[in-house]
């Protein structure tokens, strides 16, 4: 019998379970079919008053077993409070595979756990599979997204982080008989060396909700100026979408880091992705190539962006976009 796949379930600042937990659970089910009798498990470090409402969420998402530690100290995440508890729990649970969402918290915590357990960790995987020897084969982009590498671990648990939105959650809820296991942890009077003094939520325009946008109008180096990005914003507003950007556009100061799509930015899956003045380097396209429809506007007909675009127009975005906006407005 397999020792199971453990998923770290992050509790967000708004006190819900991060959606990446369920995306990973769904992927874990698929992996479990290739391992014999493999339970899907979760580990959650949570404030005591939240665990009851989470139980139902774990049940309908098909978790076989949920390990939890309930303590008031888990109110706000700091590495030195969460890491020692998570390390001890993972050591006790001893899973075969451990998956963690590559959120800010996950990327902070995961390497602490893997280093402490002297095991391997593969970051930001875009593909997970079980190979012929029953090992986790974790595939990720590297070298600025230009090279894909499949990585195996010689040690256990085999660990990987995956960004939100890379995998999809289950289409329909299930109802399983989840076994909840409360775990104890003795802090022995330990006081955190880190104190969270203040949290300022980004205003909505700063967050620029790339994650849930159905339409993203993205610009690259070809948009040249803040003026160019105003044009993109206008097109985005016309289509009810938001603005995205390539790494170069962000580095040139044309757009905020929050807008960045790609390997060092966000992974997005909109219904429509419009790439304007973006050449289509793999660093960028690994973050958007799962979009349902890709439209590209570029001066260079040989730009790699056209290789992944469904529809394209060759020309100057500064001339094309205003005409497009006009045409779209006329037809709606």
């Amino acid at each position: 019998m397999s020792k199971g796949i453990l998923i770290y379930s992050e509790v967000t600042r708004e006190n819900y379970l991060h959606t990446v937990t369920f995306e990973l659970a769904n992927k874990a089910r698929e992996l479990a079919q290739k391992l014999s009798d493999c339970p899907i498990m979760a580990l959650v470090l949570v404030k005591p008053d939240l665990i009851d409402e989470f139980k139902e969420v774990f049940r309908v998402n098909g978790f076989d077993k949920v390990f939890y530690v309930a303590d008031e100290r888990f109110r706000t995440y700091t590495t030195d409070i969460f890491a020692p508890v998570a390390i001890k729990c993972v050591r006790d649970i001893d899973p075969e595979i451990m998956l963690i969402g590559a959120t800010n918290q996950g990327r902070d915590l995961a390497p602490r756990i893997s280093s402490a357990l002297h095991t391997g960790l593969t970051a930001d995987c875009t593909g997970l599979d079980i190979n012929e020897s029953g090992k986790l084969a974790a595939t990720r982009p590297t070298f600025g997204g230009q090279l894909m590498a499949t990585i195996l671990s010689k040690k256990f648990p085999q660990m990987a982080t995956v960004r939100p939105k890379v995998f999809k959650p289950m289409k329909e809820f299930v109802n399983v008989d989840t076994n909840f296991v409360r775990m104890g942890y003795d802090f022995c009077g330990y006081k955190s060396k880190i104190e969270v003094l203040e949290f300022t939520k980004k205003i909505t325009s700063e967050i620029n909700n790339l994650d849930c946008a159905e339409v993203i109008v993205a610009g690259g180096r070809g948009m040249q100026s803040a003026e160019g990005f105003k044009l993109l914003k206008e097109l985005a507003d016309t289509l009810g979408g938001v603005v995205g950007a390539s790494r170069l556009a962000v580095e040139m100061g044309l757009a905020d880091k929050n807008c960045q799509v790609g390997q060092t930015g966000k992974t997005v899956i909109p219904k429509l992705y419009i790439a304007c003045g973006i050449s289509g380097a793999l660093q960028h396209t690994v973050g958007m190539n799962n979009a349902e429809r890709v439209i590209a506007i570029n001066k260079d007909r040989n730009a790699p962006i056209f290789e992944i675009a469904d529809y394209g127009m060759v020309g100057d975005a500064f001339e094309i976009i205003p005409k497009l906006i006009q045409s779209i407005k006329q037809h709606t």
Binding site: A137, P141, L147, M148, A149, I151, E307
Partner: peptide
Amino acid sequence: SPTYVSKAFRAVKK
């Protein structure tokens, strides 16, 4: 190193 690269390949395009 606990991890090793079992294969590396050029990213496939859609």
